[in-house]
Protein backbone atom coordinates (compact mmCIF):
# COMPACT_ATOMS: atom_id res chain seq x y z
CA UNK A 1 0.00 0.00 0.00
CA UNK A 2 1.37 3.42 -0.85
CA UNK A 3 0.00 6.76 0.13
CA UNK A 4 -0.18 9.43 -2.51
CA UNK A 5 1.97 12.40 -1.59
CA UNK A 6 5.70 11.97 -0.92
CA UNK A 7 6.60 13.98 2.13
CA UNK A 8 9.50 16.39 2.06
CA UNK A 9 10.69 15.18 5.47
CA UNK A 10 10.75 11.57 4.27
CA UNK A 11 12.97 12.59 1.36
CA UNK A 12 15.24 14.52 3.74
CA UNK A 13 15.54 11.49 6.03
CA UNK A 14 16.49 9.27 3.09
CA UNK A 15 19.16 11.76 1.98
CA UNK A 16 20.54 12.01 5.51
CA UNK A 17 20.80 8.23 5.88
CA UNK A 18 22.33 7.85 2.43
CA UNK A 19 24.93 10.49 3.29
CA UNK A 20 25.78 8.94 6.64
CA UNK A 21 26.15 5.54 5.00
CA UNK A 22 28.29 6.72 2.07
CA UNK A 23 30.52 8.98 4.11
CA UNK A 24 30.82 7.15 7.45
CA UNK A 25 29.70 3.59 6.63
CA UNK A 26 26.92 3.39 9.26
CA UNK A 27 23.87 1.96 7.54
CA UNK A 28 20.50 3.02 8.96
CA UNK A 29 18.74 2.84 5.61
CA UNK A 30 16.80 -0.29 6.53
CA UNK A 31 15.75 0.73 10.00
CA UNK A 32 11.99 0.83 10.69
CA UNK A 33 10.99 4.30 9.47
CA UNK A 34 8.56 5.17 12.29
CA UNK A 35 10.85 4.59 15.27
CA UNK A 36 13.86 5.98 13.38
CA UNK A 37 12.04 9.19 12.56
CA UNK A 38 10.99 9.61 16.16
CA UNK A 39 14.62 9.42 17.23
CA UNK A 40 15.63 11.84 14.51
CA UNK A 41 12.93 14.26 15.77
CA UNK A 42 14.47 13.95 19.26
CA UNK A 43 17.94 14.67 17.86
CA UNK A 44 16.62 17.73 15.98
CA UNK A 45 15.22 18.93 19.27
CA UNK A 46 18.42 18.41 21.30
CA UNK A 47 20.62 19.85 18.50
CA UNK A 48 18.19 22.77 18.20
CA UNK A 49 17.92 22.34 14.44
CA UNK A 50 14.92 23.38 12.32
CA UNK A 51 14.80 20.42 9.93
CA UNK A 52 16.42 17.18 8.81
CA UNK A 53 18.44 18.87 6.04
CA UNK A 54 20.13 21.03 8.67
CA UNK A 55 20.97 17.90 10.64
CA UNK A 56 22.45 16.35 7.50
CA UNK A 57 24.73 19.32 7.04
CA UNK A 58 25.88 19.19 10.66
CA UNK A 59 26.36 15.42 10.85
CA UNK A 60 28.40 15.31 7.64
CA UNK A 61 30.68 18.20 8.58
CA UNK A 62 31.04 17.80 12.34
CA UNK A 63 32.37 14.46 13.67
CA UNK A 64 31.29 15.34 17.23
CA UNK A 65 27.75 15.70 15.96
CA UNK A 66 28.06 12.29 14.30
CA UNK A 67 28.88 10.77 17.71
CA UNK A 68 25.79 12.32 19.24
CA UNK A 69 23.75 11.23 16.22
CA UNK A 70 24.92 7.62 16.60
CA UNK A 71 24.20 7.67 20.31
CA UNK A 72 20.77 9.12 19.63
CA UNK A 73 19.99 6.29 17.23
CA UNK A 74 21.25 3.50 19.51
CA UNK A 75 19.06 1.37 21.70
CA UNK A 76 20.15 2.52 25.11
CA UNK A 77 17.25 1.31 27.18
CA UNK A 78 18.29 -1.74 29.10
CA UNK A 79 18.35 -3.14 32.60
CA UNK A 80 19.88 -6.08 34.40
CA UNK A 81 17.58 -9.10 34.21
CA UNK A 82 15.15 -7.10 32.06
CA UNK A 83 12.05 -9.30 31.65
CA UNK A 84 13.08 -11.68 34.44
CA UNK A 85 10.88 -14.47 33.07
CA UNK A 86 13.25 -14.74 30.13
CA UNK A 87 16.18 -15.43 32.43
CA UNK A 88 14.09 -17.85 34.45
CA UNK A 89 13.19 -19.77 31.29
CA UNK A 90 16.86 -19.65 30.23
CA UNK A 91 17.84 -21.26 33.56
CA UNK A 92 15.19 -23.93 33.27
CA UNK A 93 15.25 -24.76 29.57
CA UNK A 94 18.64 -23.77 28.20
CA UNK A 95 21.10 -24.39 31.05
CA UNK A 96 20.45 -28.18 31.09
CA UNK A 97 21.32 -28.28 27.37
CA UNK A 98 24.46 -26.19 27.87
CA UNK A 99 25.66 -28.53 30.64
CA UNK A 100 26.22 -31.18 27.99
CA UNK A 101 28.80 -29.03 26.16
CA UNK A 102 32.49 -28.89 27.12
CA UNK A 103 32.80 -25.32 25.84
CA UNK A 104 30.07 -22.77 25.24
CA UNK A 105 30.19 -19.77 22.92
CA UNK A 106 27.52 -17.10 23.39
CA UNK A 107 26.91 -14.09 21.17
CA UNK A 108 25.06 -11.20 22.69
CA UNK A 109 24.20 -9.07 19.65
CA UNK A 110 23.26 -5.45 20.32
CA UNK A 111 24.43 -5.51 23.95
CA UNK A 112 24.18 -1.73 24.45
CA UNK A 113 25.63 -0.69 27.84
CA UNK A 114 26.02 -4.30 28.90
CA UNK A 115 23.50 -4.81 31.71
CA UNK A 116 22.07 -7.95 30.14
CA UNK A 117 25.55 -9.33 29.44
CA UNK A 118 26.49 -9.08 33.11
CA UNK A 119 23.12 -10.60 33.99
CA UNK A 120 23.91 -13.60 31.81
CA UNK A 121 27.41 -13.89 33.30
CA UNK A 122 25.88 -13.96 36.80
CA UNK A 123 23.33 -16.58 35.78
CA UNK A 124 26.01 -18.81 34.22
CA UNK A 125 28.26 -18.33 37.23
CA UNK A 126 25.49 -19.47 39.58
CA UNK A 127 24.84 -22.50 37.39
CA UNK A 128 28.55 -23.40 37.50
CA UNK A 129 28.93 -22.94 33.74
CA UNK A 130 30.72 -19.63 33.50
CA UNK A 131 34.30 -21.02 33.49
CA UNK A 132 33.59 -22.87 30.23
CA UNK A 133 31.77 -19.98 28.58
CA UNK A 134 32.97 -17.25 26.30
CA UNK A 135 30.50 -14.41 25.78
CA UNK A 136 30.97 -12.20 22.71
CA UNK A 137 29.12 -8.98 23.43
CA UNK A 138 28.77 -6.72 20.41
CA UNK A 139 27.18 -3.41 19.54
CA UNK A 140 27.56 -1.05 16.61
CA UNK A 141 28.24 1.87 18.92
CA UNK A 142 31.75 2.28 20.40
CA UNK A 143 30.53 4.64 23.10
CA UNK A 144 28.02 2.26 24.64
CA UNK A 145 30.55 -0.58 24.37
CA UNK A 146 33.00 1.48 26.40
CA UNK A 147 30.41 1.79 29.15
CA UNK A 148 29.65 -1.91 28.90
CA UNK A 149 33.34 -2.77 29.34
CA UNK A 150 33.47 -0.65 32.47
CA UNK A 151 30.79 -2.66 34.23
CA UNK A 152 29.91 0.28 36.42
CA UNK A 153 26.26 1.17 36.85
CA UNK A 154 24.37 3.68 38.94
CA UNK A 155 23.96 2.59 42.54
CA UNK A 156 20.41 3.94 42.52
CA UNK A 157 19.41 1.21 40.09
CA UNK A 158 20.53 -1.64 42.33
CA UNK A 159 17.30 -1.84 44.29
CA UNK A 160 15.32 -2.36 41.09
CA UNK A 161 17.93 -4.77 39.70
CA UNK A 162 17.85 -6.79 42.93
CA UNK A 163 14.10 -7.30 42.55
CA UNK A 164 14.53 -8.37 38.94
CA UNK A 165 17.44 -10.66 39.87
CA UNK A 166 15.26 -12.45 42.42
CA UNK A 167 12.36 -12.78 39.97
CA UNK A 168 14.82 -14.19 37.45
CA UNK A 169 15.64 -17.04 39.83
CA UNK A 170 18.77 -15.54 41.39
CA UNK A 171 20.27 -17.84 44.00
CA UNK A 172 22.47 -15.58 46.08
CA UNK A 173 22.43 -12.10 47.49
CA UNK A 174 22.67 -9.70 44.54
CA UNK A 175 24.99 -7.38 46.45
CA UNK A 176 27.70 -10.08 46.31
CA UNK A 177 28.27 -9.11 42.70
CA UNK A 178 29.16 -5.46 43.09
CA UNK A 179 31.02 -3.03 45.28
CA UNK A 180 29.37 0.27 46.07
CA UNK A 181 31.59 3.30 45.61
CA UNK A 182 30.02 6.72 46.00
CA UNK A 183 26.96 6.57 43.74
CA UNK A 184 28.25 3.74 41.59
CA UNK A 185 27.99 -0.03 41.68
CA UNK A 186 31.20 -1.58 40.35
CA UNK A 187 30.63 -5.13 39.20
CA UNK A 188 33.13 -7.85 40.12
CA UNK A 189 35.98 -8.06 37.65
CA UNK A 190 35.72 -11.85 37.60
CA UNK A 191 32.37 -11.48 35.82
CA UNK A 192 34.19 -9.85 32.91
CA UNK A 193 36.87 -12.52 32.60
CA UNK A 194 35.13 -14.47 29.85
CA UNK A 195 33.43 -11.59 28.08
CA UNK A 196 34.84 -10.17 24.85
CA UNK A 197 33.37 -6.76 23.99
CA UNK A 198 33.69 -5.74 20.38
CA UNK A 199 32.14 -3.61 17.69
CA UNK A 200 29.85 -5.35 15.21
CA UNK A 201 27.12 -3.87 13.06
CA UNK A 202 24.20 -6.19 12.31
CA UNK A 203 23.29 -4.08 9.28
CA UNK A 204 26.62 -4.46 7.50
CA UNK A 205 28.97 -6.98 9.15
CA UNK A 206 29.03 -10.72 8.63
CA UNK A 207 29.34 -13.80 10.80
CA UNK A 208 32.52 -14.03 12.89
CA UNK A 209 32.22 -17.36 14.69
CA UNK A 210 29.93 -20.28 15.40
CA UNK A 211 27.87 -20.04 18.57
CA UNK A 212 25.86 -22.29 20.87
CA UNK A 213 23.68 -19.40 21.95
CA UNK A 214 22.75 -16.11 20.28
CA UNK A 215 20.86 -13.49 22.27
CA UNK A 216 19.37 -10.49 20.51
CA UNK A 217 16.48 -9.04 22.45
CA UNK A 218 14.57 -5.93 21.41
CA UNK A 219 17.11 -4.98 18.76
CA UNK A 220 15.43 -6.34 15.63
CA UNK A 221 12.27 -4.31 16.38
CA UNK A 222 14.22 -1.26 15.20
CA UNK A 223 14.82 -2.80 11.75
CA UNK A 224 12.49 -3.08 8.76
CA UNK A 225 11.60 -6.49 7.37
CA UNK A 226 14.41 -6.46 4.80
CA UNK A 227 17.08 -5.93 7.43
CA UNK A 228 15.40 -8.37 9.81
CA UNK A 229 15.66 -11.02 7.11
CA UNK A 230 19.36 -10.27 6.70
CA UNK A 231 19.94 -10.63 10.43
CA UNK A 232 17.97 -13.88 10.67
CA UNK A 233 20.17 -15.22 7.87
CA UNK A 234 23.26 -14.06 9.74
CA UNK A 235 22.09 -15.71 12.96
CA UNK A 236 21.26 -18.93 11.18
CA UNK A 237 24.72 -18.96 9.63
CA UNK A 238 26.31 -18.26 13.03
CA UNK A 239 24.44 -20.83 15.11
CA UNK A 240 25.61 -24.44 15.63
CA UNK A 241 23.11 -27.19 14.92
CA UNK A 242 20.82 -27.31 17.98
CA UNK A 243 22.03 -23.87 18.99
CA UNK A 244 19.71 -21.54 20.89
CA UNK A 245 18.33 -18.20 19.72
CA UNK A 246 16.79 -15.82 22.27
CA UNK A 247 14.61 -12.91 21.10
CA UNK A 248 12.57 -10.17 22.80
CA UNK A 249 9.09 -10.83 24.17
CA UNK A 250 7.24 -9.28 21.21
CA UNK A 251 9.54 -10.64 18.50
CA UNK A 252 9.01 -13.83 16.58
CA UNK A 253 10.49 -16.06 13.91
CA UNK A 254 6.96 -16.87 12.76
CA UNK A 255 6.17 -15.80 9.21
CA UNK A 256 9.87 -15.46 8.41
CA UNK A 257 11.62 -17.77 5.96
CA UNK A 258 13.55 -19.16 8.95
CA UNK A 259 10.56 -20.35 10.94
CA UNK A 260 10.97 -23.94 9.76
CA UNK A 261 14.58 -24.11 10.93
CA UNK A 262 13.74 -23.66 14.59
CA UNK A 263 11.58 -25.21 17.27
CA UNK A 264 10.21 -23.33 20.25
CA UNK A 265 12.01 -24.16 23.45
CA UNK A 266 10.00 -21.79 25.60
CA UNK A 267 7.51 -20.14 23.29
CA UNK A 268 6.28 -17.39 25.54
CA UNK A 269 9.84 -16.37 26.40
CA UNK A 270 11.00 -16.49 22.79
CA UNK A 271 13.72 -19.09 23.14
CA UNK A 272 14.18 -21.05 19.93
CA UNK A 273 16.37 -24.04 19.08
CA UNK A 274 17.87 -24.52 15.67
CA UNK A 275 16.84 -27.92 14.31
CA UNK A 276 17.92 -27.64 10.64
Amino acid sequence: MTLARPKLEDIEVQLLLEGVYRYYGFDFRNYAPSSLKRRIWNILCSEKLPNVSALQEKVLHDPACLDRFLLGLSVNVTAMFRNPNFFLAFREKVVPILRTYPFIRIWHAGCSTGQEVYSMAILLEEEGLYPRCRIYATDMNEMVLKQAKGGIFSLQLMQEYTQLYLKAGGKRSFSEYYTAAYDSAIFRASLKENIVFSQHNLATDSSFNEFNVILCRNVLIYFNKTLQKRVYELFHASLCPFGILGLGRQETLKFTPYEAYYEELAGSEKLFRRIH
Binding site: M1, S35, R38, I221, Q228, Q250
Partner: peptide, 30 residues
Protein backbone atom coordinates in the same frame (compact mmCIF):
# COMPACT_ATOMS: atom_id res chain seq x y z
CA UNK B 1 6.65 -6.53 16.02
CA UNK B 2 5.94 -6.01 12.28
CA UNK B 3 2.39 -7.34 12.46
CA UNK B 4 0.45 -6.38 9.34
CA UNK B 5 -2.15 -3.68 9.80
CA UNK B 6 -5.38 -5.21 8.50
CA UNK B 7 -8.92 -3.81 8.37
CA UNK B 8 -11.40 -5.08 10.92
CA UNK B 9 -8.81 -6.03 13.51
CA UNK B 10 -8.15 -4.44 16.88
CA UNK B 11 -4.45 -4.15 17.72
CA UNK B 12 -3.45 -3.62 21.34
CA UNK B 13 -0.06 -2.20 22.32
CA UNK B 14 1.87 -4.70 24.48
CA UNK B 15 2.92 -3.73 28.01
CA UNK B 16 6.29 -1.93 28.25
CA UNK B 17 6.63 -1.27 24.48
CA UNK B 18 5.78 1.77 22.41
CA UNK B 19 3.65 0.91 19.40
CA UNK B 20 4.18 2.87 16.17
CA UNK B 21 2.76 2.49 12.68
CA UNK B 22 4.58 2.25 9.39
CA UNK B 23 2.87 1.95 6.00
CA UNK B 24 0.89 -1.28 6.35
CA UNK B 25 2.43 -2.65 9.55
CA UNK B 26 3.24 -1.99 13.19
CA UNK B 27 6.68 -1.38 14.68
CA UNK B 28 7.46 -1.67 18.37
CA UNK B 29 10.12 0.18 20.32
CA UNK B 30 11.55 0.19 23.83
Amino acid sequence: DKDDLLPGTVYVAPADYHMLVDVGYFTLSI
